[in-house]
């Protein structure tokens, strides 16, 4: 009899948890900052994202380089990352949705085993791609 009571309790708790917590929401972030288009006549614009200064350190911070250190494609180590990313087609200028360097390790929607640590890092990569994925 005790066993039957326990089963009933578990079933009731499970049903309450199931129906009270079922939601249909989407992950939405604040509007992405829209930078000015790259100005080729100017020197480095104010909002220009530098690959060397802003993007390469992310691969180090997010521990990507623990594995992608030359033994595994792409090589994301300092000085080699840009060539490796572009030659493998992992960044498509002006198109972040088709840039695997942005989508695959994305902390929310990515499916890579190791991902970027936060959305601030992906925002920087997004801006860099938006500005033409330049080697700067």
């Amino acid at each position: 009899m005790k066993a039957i009571h326990l089963i009933y309790i578990v079933i009731i708790i499970a049903l309450i948890a199931l129906f009270e917590s079922c939601e249909y929401e989407y992950i939405e972030f604040a509007e992405q900052p829209v930078p000015p288009p790259p100005d080729t006549n100017d020197t480095i614009p104010v909002h220009q994202i530098s690959f060397t200064l802003a993007i390469e350190p992310i691969f180090e911070e997010a521990t990507c380089t623990n594995c992608h250190n030359g033994s595994l494609t792409p090589d994301l180590t300092e000085g080699n990352a840009y060539n490796s990313i572009m030659s493998n087609g992992l960044a498509v200028p002006f198109d972040h949705t088709n840039s695997m360097i942005y989508t695959y390790p994305h902390p929310v929607s990515g499916s890579h085993g190791t991902r970027y640590q936060n959305t601030a890092q992906t925002d920087s990569i997004y801006l860099w791609i938006y500005q033409g994925a330049l080697d700067n």
């Binding site: 499970a14 948890a17 199931l18 917590s21 079922c22 939601e23 929401e25 989407y26 992950i27 939405e28 972030f29 604040a30 902390p107 929310v108 936060n118 959305t119």
Partner: peptide
């Protein structure tokens, strides 16, 4: 019943603890 263990900001705006649940 799964409970996502990532940080709150991974769930975007209007975060609620139940956002983490999967069944």
């Amino acid at each position: 019943w799964g409970i996502d263990g990532r940080s709150n900001d991974s769930f975007g705006e209007n975060y609620k603890p139940t956002n983490r649940f999967s069944y």
